[in-house]
């Protein structure tokens, strides 16, 4: 593993649930992210998988400073992100960009494509007007759009092209990290591969790091070097993607993998079905979050929260079985 770009250490985000209008009664917390630690290497892709409500998007929003941390620290290039201000904060904003799922909602409908792409650079304020023009032309070419796209409005483009515009905007300020929150799941099948290849090429060329969030395991496996599996606000398994697919250790990871769709009709996979459903992590009881659904639950699982520990080189699991 090369140099580390991002380090999340015991990151927590609780959303308080209150009742009452004037006198607030604190009923408890939704522990959306509860003690998550991971690192993202320079020029690498870290994938986060999990089902809706598992906290993967909240984790991304914490890195983007769209939410404030309840606890823990996020280090970026060795600096604590919660202490950034002034020019340092502006530099951080330029170095961390995002591409979201819905290319229809992520582009302002009343702005020209050129203005949309230029915005992070304009706000960064480091380059001259001519420099900005060149930079936009450069990124537009990089994502495979025609030059005259700058003059048009977003509604004149299809979904796949809009996602290219969103990627161009993310690249404009020359970032070190791009957060990809379900970047292909809203796109057509034949366009998905185009966008995934584009993201791969960009990483090869620029050495930018990605934090990839997706629910499609095949997409995460294909794009990321290391994958983390989240369940109800906890990171339950972190390992190199190939290894995760071949030897999943956590019962939840095993169930998730067994539920993935086959790639051909004769692929026989034993489906592991966890009883019950995912609930919101509102005032979760002590112990493992999977306790009530786990097929291998033991008494200790309901008492102690299993820590994420390294069971073999580079393979981290949070489970009392291992």
């Amino acid at each position: 593993m090369g140099e580390i770009l991002v380090e999340a250490r015991d990151v927590k985000k609780y959303f308080p649930v209150n009742r009452g209008v004037i006198v607030l009664k604190h009923l408890g917390d939704i522990k959306a992210v509860d003690g998550v630690s991971f690192t993202i290497g320079k020029g690498e892709t870290f994938g986060l998988v999990g089902e809706s409500g598992c906290g993967k998007t909240t984790t991304a929003r914490l890195i983007l400073l769209l939410e404030t941390l309840t606890g823990g620290t996020i280090f970026f290039d060795g600096k604590d992100t919660s202490e950034l201000s002034g020019p340092e904060l502006r530099k951080y904003r330029a170095s961390v960009q995002a591409v979201f799922q819905d290319p229809y909602s992520s582009l302002s409908p009343r702005m020209r494509v050129g203005t949309i792409i230029a915005e992070p650079v304009v706000i960064g304020g480091a380059i001259s007007t001519n420099g900005i023009k060149d930079r936009i032309a450069q990124v537009i070419k990089m994502v495979g759009l025609r030059r005259d796209a700058m003059e048009l409005y977003p509604h004149e483009f299809s979904g796949g092209q809009r996602q290219r515009i969103a990627i161009a905007r993310a690249l404009a300020s020359n970032p070190k990290l791009i957060i990809l929150d379900e970047p292909v799941s809203a796109l057509d099948v034949s366009i998905r591969a185009q966008i995934m290849n584009l993201l791969y090429d960009i990483q090869q060329k620029l050495g930018v790091s990605y934090l990839l969030i997706a629910h499609n395991l095949a997409v995460v496996k294909h794009m990321s070097k290391v994958t983390g599996v989240m369940y109800m606000g906890k990171l339950v398994e972190v390992v190199e993607s190939q290894e995760l697919y071949l030897h999943p250790l956590h019962p939840y990871t095993q169930a998730l993998l067994s539920a993935a769709l086959p790639s051909h009709p004769d692929e026989q996979r034993e489906e592991i079905v966890l009883p019950g459903e995912v609930s919101t992590p509102f005032n979760p009881p002590p112990g493992c979050r999977l306790y009530r659904r786990c097929l291998y639950a033991r008494p200790v699982c309901s008492e102690q929260d299993p820590p994420l520990k390294e069971v073999s080189s580079g393979h981290f699991v949070a489970c009392h079985l291992h």
Binding site: S158, G160, Q161, D188, V189, S190, I191, R192, A193, Q194, M196, N197, Y200, L217, A218, V219, K221, H222, M223, Q242, Y245, A260, S263
Partner: peptide, 24 residues
């Protein structure tokens, strides 16, 4: 053929996916 080729597969290690150029 292109649709099938453009799917990322879990059991294989690929660098790049097969793509269909252009838009629908």
């Amino acid at each position: 053929k292109a649709l099938l080729g453009s799917l990322p597969k879990m059991e294989e290690r690929q660098e790049k996916l097969y793509t269909i150029e252009g838009q629908p």
